[in-house]
Design a protein around this nucleic acid. Structure first.
Ligand SMILES: [Mn+2]
Ligand SMILES: [Mn+2]
Ligand SMILES: [Zn+2]
Ligand SMILES: [Zn+2]
Lengths: 141, 141
DNA sequence: TTTTTTATAGAAAACAATTATCGAGTAGTT
DNA sequence: AACTACTCGATAATTGTTTTCTATAAAAAA
C-alpha cells in the first residue's frame, strides 16, 4: 500500500511528502467518506501547520494518479473515497453520514444505459439518500 | 399548466408574480436542464431588472411546492428540471450539455438497493458522464 | 375602487467551498 | 554541499448560493 503511493507519486514527478502520505493513509483507513474539512480536522492534531489548501491540492494529485475518487453525495462539498471501484453511496439526511451500498451489481444497469444512449459513457455516479438505522431508532423514541 | 402553478403558489401562501411564472414557464418549456445562471440570462431580455437572487429564491419555492427538481450532474452548480419523475441524466464532458436518459427503468435497481440496505431510502440521483453524439463527431474530424 | 396588510423583488453584502498566487522551504540530484 | 525544481501553507481571489434590507407590488379588506 505505502509502497504503492510512494512510487506512484514519484513516477509522475510528484514529491513524496509527509502531508501526502498522511492524507492518503487517513483516507484509506476510514470508511467515513470524509470531505476536505473533515480530513483537515482529523490531521490537525498530528500536523498542526497543515492547511486546508494542502488537503485540496493533495486530493487533486491523488485523484490524478488514480488513488482516490471524488464523490458527489448531493451535499455542498465533495467527499473522498480511497476505494476505487465505482460503487453507489447512501447518505443519511439526518446525521449526514455517507456509507457504501453493498452487494449491488451496477454493471448490468450501467450497460443498459450505455446501450440505450448515443452518448459514449465514460463514468457515472449513483447516490441515494434516506435515513440510517441509528437515526431511524432515534426517531422512533 | 398555468392554472396549476398559480393555485399551487396561492394555496401555500406564496404570491403569484410575473417573475415566478416566467421562470417556471421557461423551465417547463426546455429540455436543456439549465442552471440558475442560464435561466437568468435567458430571461434577462424580457425581464431586464430581474436578479439572480430572484431566480434562486423562486427555484427554492418551486422545489417546495413540488414543481421542479434540483439536479446534481457532477458540476459546480445545480441544474433544474420541471419534469418531476426521477430519471437519470447524462452530461457531456466536452460541451457540458445535460440530457435525459430515456427508456430506462430505474425502479428495479432502486428496489434492489432499498432491500439490500438498512437505510430507509427516500430518494436517489443517478448521473452519467460521457461524450455526446455531436462532440463525438466533432472529435473524429 | 380605495385602503390596508403582507409577502416579494432586487440590490448589495455575506457566506462557504474551492482554487490561484507567491515566497520560503525542502526533497532529490549532482 | 550546492543546486534546482517542486511543494507548503498563508493569503487573496473566485464562484455559486444565501441572506439582509427596504421600496413596492399583490392580495385582502373595506
Ligand atoms: Mn465508498
Ligand atoms: Mn431531465
Ligand atoms: Zn443518520
Ligand atoms: Zn458534447
Amino acid at each position: 500500500m505505502e509502497v504503492c503511493i510512494t512510487s506512484l507519486l514519484r513516477d509522475r514527478g510528484f514529491k513524496v511528502t509527509p502531508q501526502r502520505l498522511a492524507i492518503y493513509n487517513m483516507l484509506s483507513s476510514t470508511k467515513s467518506h470524509p470531505n476536505a474539512e473533515m480530513i483537515f480536522n482529523e490531521l490537525q492534531a498530528m500536523y498542526p501547520t497543515m492547511s486546508l489548501a494542502t488537503v485540496y491540492k493533495t486530493m487533486e494529485i491523488l485523484k490524478e494518479i488514480g488513488l482516490v475518487q471524488v464523490l458527489n453525495a448531493g451535499e455542498d462539498s465533495f467527499r473522498y473515497d480511497a476505494v476505487m471501484t465505482n460503487h453507489p453511496h447512501v447518505r443519511c439526511t439526518e446525521c449526514g453520514q455517507v456509507e457504501d451500498v453493498y452487494d449491488i451489481n451496477i454493471d448490468a444497469f450501467v450497460n443498459e444505459v450505455s446501450q440505450g444512449t448515443k452518448y459514449q459513457i465514460m463514468g457515472q455516479q449513483f447516490y441515494f439518500h434516506g435515513i440510517c438505522p441509528t437515526c431511524q431508532r432515534k426517531n422512533s423514541n
